[in-house]
Amino acid sequence: MVTNGNPEAAPHSDAATIRLAHRVCDDSLDWLDRVRALFALPRDVADHEITGDALKSLSELALAAGVVRREAVSGPRGASAAERLLDFAWREFREGDLLYQLQRHTPAATHPLEIYSMFAAVGYRHAPFERLAAHLGELRAWRVPEHVPNRRLAVVAATRRVGLPAHDDPAALTGQTWLGGTPEPWMLDANNAYGLTHTVFHLTDWGADPEGLPPELEEYLHRWLCVWVEVFKETGFWDLLAELLAVGACLRRPLLFGEVWSHLAHAQHDDGMVPNGVTRPAENTSVAFRNHHHPTIVAVVAATLTVARALRPAPQPA
């Protein structure tokens, strides 16, 4: 058994952490599976008029389901829900053709590749898309998107996942992120926090490769992650808390925060939805969906990585 990884955390056995995270994950997947029609993309608009939010939600659903498949620590119930969700999302993206059309329509956009890479990572491929992406990746324009630094890392990670040649220097890009600057920990705000979590997710490929995080940033997170977890646990900001829990599970020496999982499990609704902790969920599921599908998706990722790392503290790099 691994130890908690954080000697200062309240004692909480790995078995209890695994049990809690497992339950949160299964219940979240149940809810996502039940409401999956709400993730469907509109059929009555041109492809390029589909909103970024709709594409983002569906791609995040695919990401979470892909992590469940990759880690293979879910029980049969969670695993089959994840498979259904992956297939559903791939069908909604017309088995890659929608992403291909979007990339053709706006060649400078990076989000079709970022979304496609989630599927490519778990074996769903679309050959014309990849030919187009390979060409775009060679262009000077592809090196200079006007993105915030952590988003540049997202593109680097997507390129890597799809298997295209890398032209950017991840170390230089990392140095420009909030996390890469190892800032004073009290300067974290919600916006920086999401930047930080995504820097870790992209560098470690959503926990598949903890070695992708530079050692000095691992050390920095070992020092301060527990502070931010404590602060957002206290304020009940479940969406961000779940992201931070996922970060802990992406580290070489994982920080699993067993005691905090009991708070997240307690916040989860009986139907499996994890509220964001910031806005009050509506009674009506399709209304509640808008603001609370994201924390429920993040809970799946965080819980899956937590269980995987508790069972297997040093995973094989992908």
């Binding site: 200062e8 920990p185 009290w186 301060w224 527990c226 502070v227 931010w228 206290e234």
Partner: peptide, 20 residues
């Protein structure tokens, strides 16, 4: 000392300047 620094950072984030 690391825990003192953590407590200080936490108090600052909670805008509890006195504790920090």
């Amino acid at each position: 000392r690391t825990d003192l620094a953590r407590g200080m950072a936490r108090a600052m984030l909670r805008r509890d300047h006195h504790t920090a």
